[in-house]
Design a protein around this nucleic acid. Structure first.
Lengths: 187, 187
DNA sequence: CATGAACCTGAACTCCGGTTCCGAATCTAC
DNA sequence: GTAGATTCGGAACCGGAGTTCAGGTTCATG
């Protein structure tokens, strides 16, 4: 179905990239509240061009989100490479949250009401959740997380922190508090 | 300015109530995604009537949210009447969250991006935050909450839980975990 | 350098939902 | 019971944001 796919013309590829960059930047700053005209202007292109590369706004957003999920997966993989189970867990958690904190669109996708969608996309295209599960398991087995801690709890914590990222909320403080209730085995 | 205020005509008062009920019900279920026509239909009235009673959609929402804040303040007052400081704290926390869980509009108002607005309204019209502060202080003084716990942390926890209220998130589990990191002096 | 396909532009279009407005209906006071 | 003010109804209006499309432009190929 996606078979023939002749390579894009040079200017087309360049423009496609410009759109992705502009959209990424703007979505990151203001979530999906940005409008197509703004993205076009920032990319130095006409709106029509956006629609030549992406079926609609949703598709453009999806492309951006997909990128982020891939980056996220890389972060997770790196964390998993750490020997110490607790360090691995913390690295994953903060790596994840730091990225999310820097990107309103990502946050929107993760927190938004159409919940199932994006996470499903992520599940299909990356093995982020598998890696997360492994890291959590390692920490539990090493006695560094409460015995009943589950990957779903990682999501819980994560979402909780995200909710404290806009405005005055101090999400780091929030994570600190939660971690205190979840960490085990001091030294 | 609001001085003369002749009493509303009987039917007007009845209709106003119907609007409030319909809007409360729908906003609670679907947040501010409901549209004016829907509310009108559910109330058995024309749209024009909504606008006779409320300047615009925002004002209607504000009326609903205001109601909820008042109810919330009553809950807080009740919690404050409990002798045991920890029980008071837990009562407040769960009372708050239970109400919020039942009302998407309220959640939306508390969690939404236009953050400052609603909380300011609340601060002006109710003494919810004052009561909360007192309850938190009591628990800290009694050694039942970590010494550095502050009213702002209550908000943190609260927002964190809210983020886990839609879809599959198990907000009670989330609160349990957080509480574990915050509670002090078991039995 | 010429030709045609691929691509770009941006004004115009469409859809959607909040808001208005005025004739019709309803209530209150006398 | 009736006059007159108040309130209601809902079709029409309006602005905003996504999307389309009829040319003009640029690139790749021979």
């Amino acid at each position: 179905m996606t078979a023939p796919e002749r390579p894009l013309r040079a200017d087309a590829r360049r423009n496609r990239e410009a759109v992705l960059d502009a959209a990424g930047e703007l979505f990151a700053r203001r979530g999906d509240a940005v409008q197509m005209d703004e993205i076009a202007e920032r990319a130095g292109l006409g709106v029509g061009t956006l629609y030549r590369h992406f079926a609609d706004k949703q598709a453009l957003l999806a492309a951006i989100i997909g990128r982020r999920f891939e980056a996220m997966t890389a972060v997770a993989r790196a964390a998993d490479a750490t020997e110490d189970p607790w360090t691995a867990f913390e690295t994953l958690l903060y790596g994840y949250l730091e990225s999310v904190a820097a990107d309103a669109a990502f946050r929107f996708a993760l927190l938004g009401p159409q919940e199932p969608r994006w996470n499903d996309i992520a599940a299909e295209k990356t093995d982020f959740s598998a890696i997360t599960e492994r890291i959590v398991l390692r920490a539990v087995d090493a006695g560094r997380l409460r015995a009943d801690f589950h990957a779903a709890d990682f999501v819980l914590i994560t979402r909780g922190a995200m909710a404290n990222m806009s405005g005055t909320g101090d999400w780091r403080r929030h994570v600190t508090l939660v971690l205190e209730g979840v960490r085990r085995g001091g030294r």
